[in-house]
């Protein structure tokens, strides 16, 4: 790892100020991606601004159907939140499948959403739940936020402080994990609410997380695993790598979508 300078922020304002004072600074949340990347010398930030001690960015609040998850909330906290489980168990299920227990004790929702890894789990939930990404300066809708592989609407130095959403009537998540890394080879999050059905896919797309409008239409007409069968998923938009061909991933989208609908009930 190249040398770096560590700073510990105690408030959002302090974090943003520390980050903007150095050109090559990066925010450090749980560090489960960033530290590993730095160890491989694929990232070399001059400065790190630690967010783990910013109290206002932690914790989960549920008021009626309105959910707010602080950006520095860990996967383990999301997975074990009884308040969240009562209104949206699918997101608890998703968080409990990320990495391993030790990674879940450190990794955070804000870090995952900011990084927007094309095979990360959370982007599919944020997009399917039509969530809002709250930052230090504005609120961004999920449809505007995700812009491609590792690419988001975040500006230089912009800091995610929370993820908010209205709990859907039904939601489910199913993923086919890469057996070695546990990242999603394909993961599908489905959500049904008064405003419609949203289906978001992670791990499979050649340009990051995406919605499948044909699946949404089919599930809106008939919320059942069978209605997924009639839809054709376009393989030309799928990722190709040593783990799976585009055709295989396109098929996995349907299989995972069926399982997600079954899990949602």
């Amino acid at each position: 790892m190249y040398d770096t300078n560590y700073h510990r922020a105690s408030s959002v304002e302090e974090a943003v100020k520390l980050r903007s004072s150095q050109d090559e600074a990066r925010y450090l949340s749980g560090g489960m991606t960033l530290i590993a990347t730095m160890k491989q010398r694929l990232a070399a930030p001059s400065d790190l601004v630690d967010l783990r001690h910013v109290a206002s960015m932690k914790g989960i609040s549920v008021e009626g159907r309105k959910v707010r998850i602080g950006a520095a909330t860990t996967h383990a906290e999301v997975a074990s939140s009884s308040a969240l489980r009562a209104v949206c168990p699918a997101i608890c299920h998703l968080a409990g499948m990320i990495g391993d227990p030790h990674v879940r004790h450190m990794g955070t929702i804000g870090g995952s959403v900011a990084n927007n890894d094309p095979a990360a789990d959370y982007p599919s939930a944020v997009l399917a739940l039509n969530a809002t990404v709250v930052t230090d300066r504005r609120e961004i809708s999920a449809d505007d936020y995700f812009q491609g592989m590792f690419d988001t609407a975040l500006e230089e130095g912009e800091l995610i402080t929370a993820i908010t959403f209205e709990a859907p009537e039904k939601a489910g998540y199913a993923k086919f994990p890469n057996p070695a890394s546990r990242y999603a080879l394909t993961g599908v999050f489905v959500a049904k609410s008064g405003s419609g059905v949203r289906v978001a896919v992670t791990g499979a797309g050649s340009n990051g997380v995406f919605r499948v409008k044909d699946l949404e239409a089919a599930l809106l007409a008939n919320w059942s695993a069978e209605s997924v069968s009639s839809v054709t998923v376009d393989a030309s938009q799928m990722m190709e790598d040593m783990h799976a061909t585009p055709d295989y991933r396109a098929n996995l989208v349907k299989v995972m979508a069926k399982r997600a609908v079954q899990a949602a009930g």
Binding site: G31, I35, H102
Partner: peptide, 9 residues
């Protein structure tokens, strides 16, 4: 809490 000490500064 259990953590991986090779991935924390």
């Amino acid at each position: 809490k259990s953590v991986k000490s090779c991935s924390i500064l």
